[in-house]
Design a binder for these strands. Structure first.
Length: 513
RNA sequence: GCUCGGUUCGUCUAGGGGUUAGGACGCGUCCCUUUCACGGACGAAACACGGGUUCGAUUCCCGUACCGAGUACCA
């Protein structure tokens, strides 16, 4: 019988959730939905010194924004409540003790100074990788070296101690990663990881295995940075006697810097001026700010599509995927093995596509927002029509204002470059005629305006291309934009004539001979 | 250093013993056009290197190089 698919996303609330973390969550979600399984979120806050207030709320909001729905979480609850490891603290010790009991773990009393000294000593002795392992533990203060009564006495007297995993000296640890295939590691290269810290909290390694087991996790989909410690986890499943229900592992390739090499970091974002966090974030301790996709004008569906394709592809030519389509198409087999450089251009392209796909009516929301922000009235203009006209030239919602503010505000200045090239005597004479013809009218249709202009042009024997940009400049102040005749229709003949008159006056001294 | 992973156009990638090595982003040229944008057409652009195996290797194997991750009482 097939095991129920249960996956989990297990972030630490140590700051803003990195976009790579969002991708990990997304892959978990896609897999769970595809398989008809469940996805849960667990907060891994076993390091109390790194807790950052607000981080958990940030995670919650980021996932909500991107469209990831959790079946179980600290916020909605679930059959395995609580979902915060700090609240599960009493659970872990018994498993550590079980390991001590069965001889797979031991107490260690070494101070940080002693640990440092050990590592220094090994380094000086040119040992390749200094670690607490089968060999060095014989030289340290722990329950494998100390007399039994001393161990008992230390424990009874409240001496600080940790519990360490007793990694076997010679054993091949293997795991079959769904993305990488068989990975083999010799236990000699692993060290005796701390399982329980001296503050009574478990480390990631123990808490993670215990919770995944208790919560019935079937697949662990996480970043590649966990691959080196995966053998430790395999050992833990084995020693805890949970081998037969050990989840399947899938270690995701990392997100890399866009240029050069290395892991994607906040520094790249600051340097290149693009976001790598889902939403804006201000660190409450340092006051450091980070830019978010959401506030930068990215649509959640664009970010989702973009993220899904960073390391995965459907094997077809299709590029645009809704969440439902991603779920349908997703498979772990099609996740790549190599690191993925982060290219913001692709994200922008996706944003443009999704923005363009919206109806004119939906788009008006962005324009209304801009109008509000600039305290400008819509002058009763047809916003849907304007947005429809503008949508081909927009990448972000804010571009609607940037590209179309002249609909709502009179030009204050005129693009110098266009003036110097196109504000000719010829153009001025056409504008004068056009202006007075328009002034006589109230409203006008685009084709009427066009006919009117063409009549003037024919009379004067002037080609349209020679004067068009100047006319546009007079009306909008800029040299580029959508169909000018439609702009005139939207603005109305009277208003257009008014603007032309003003331009004629303002630029009277700039006419090119 | 050591351990583990990785390596197809600038980037994301498809492919896989015999292909004109395909697509997308970006870039360039042209077309459309009153401009810009959109759209369309076209173009430049890749199998890291060296050995094997093979009639044949980008594809399989081994090395090398390079890149990445891990190497905490952090996750």
């Amino acid at each position: 019988m097939e095991r129920e698919v249960r996956v989990r996303f297990a972030p630490s609330p140590t700051g803003a959730l990195h976009i790579g973390g969002v991708r990990t969550a997304l892959y978990n979600y896609l897999f769970a939905r595809k398989m008809g399984g469940k996805m849960l979120l667990r907060i891994e806050d076993t390091d109390q010194t790194r807790f950052v207030p607000g981080a958990e709320e940030y995670i919650q909001e980021a996932l909500r924004w991107i469209g990831i729905e959790l079946d179980e979480s600290p916020w909605v609850g679930g059959p395995h409540t609580p979902y915060r490891q700090s609240e599960r603290k009493p659970l872990y010790m018994q498993y550590a003790l079980q390991l001590v009991e069965s001889g797979h773990a031991y107490y260690a009393f070494d101070t940080p100074e002693e640990l440092d000294a050990m590592r220094e000593r090994l380094k000086a002795a040119k040992v390749a990788s200094p670690q607490y392992n089968a060999i060095t533990r014989a030289t340290m203060k722990n329950s494998t070296t100390l007399p039994e009564d001393e161990v008992k006495a230390r424990l009874a007297s409240g001496d600080p101690y940790v519990i360490r995993l007793k990694v076997p000296r010679k054993e091949e640890v293997r795991l079959n990663d769904m993305i990488r295939g068989w990975v083999m590691v010799h236990s000699a290269t692993l060290d005796d990881k701390v399982l329980m810290k001296s503050d009574g909290m478990p480390t990631y390694h123990l808490a993670n295995i215990v919770d995944d087991h208790l919560m019935g996790i079937s697949h662990v989909i996480r970043g590649e940075e966990w691959l080196p410690s995966a053998p430790i986890h395999v050992l833990l499943y084995k020693y805890l006697g949970w081998e037969d229900t050990m989840p399947q592992f899938a270690h995701l390739p990392l997100l890399l810097k866009p240029d050069g090499n290395g892991k994607l970091s906040k520094r790249d974002a600051d340097q290149h001026g693009f976001p790598i966090f889902p939403m804006d974030w201000t660190d409450p301790n340092t006051g450091e700010k980070a830019m978010g996709f959401r506030e930068s004008g990215y649509l959640p569906e664009a970010v989702t599509n973009f993220l899904a394709f960073l390391g995965w592809n459907p094997g077809t030519q299709q590029e645009m995927f809704t969440m439902a389509e991603l779920i349908e198409a997703f498979s772990i087999e099609r996740i790549g093995k190599s690191g993925t450089k982060f290219d913001i251009n692709k994200a922008k392209w996706y944003n443009q596509q999704y923005l363009k796909a919206k109806t004119d009516e939906e788009l008006t929301a962005y324009m209304k927002e801009a109008l509000n922000a600039h305290s400008v009235s819509d002058n009763g203009l047809d916003l849907a029509k304007i947005c429809g006209l503008l949508k081909e030239r927009v990448t972000f919602p804010a571009d609607f204002w940037q590209e179309g503010k002249y609909f709502f505000t009179e030009p204050e200045q005129y693009d110098e470059e266009i003036v110097s090239k196109k504000w000719t005597a010829e153009a001025v004479s056409v504008i004068e005629s056009f202006q007075s013809a328009l002034a006589a009218k109230g409203s006008i249709q685009a084709d009427e305006a066009k006919a009117l202009l063409e009549g003037i042009l024919t009379d004067k024997g002037i080609k349209i291309g020679k004067v068009m940009q100047a006319i546009r400049l007079a009306i909008t102040g800029v040299g580029a934009g959508p169909d000018l005749m439609v702009i005139i229709e939207i603005l109305g003949a009277a208003k257009t004539a008014e603007r032309m008159a003003k331009a004629l006056q303002t630029l009277s001294s700039k006419v090119i001979a």
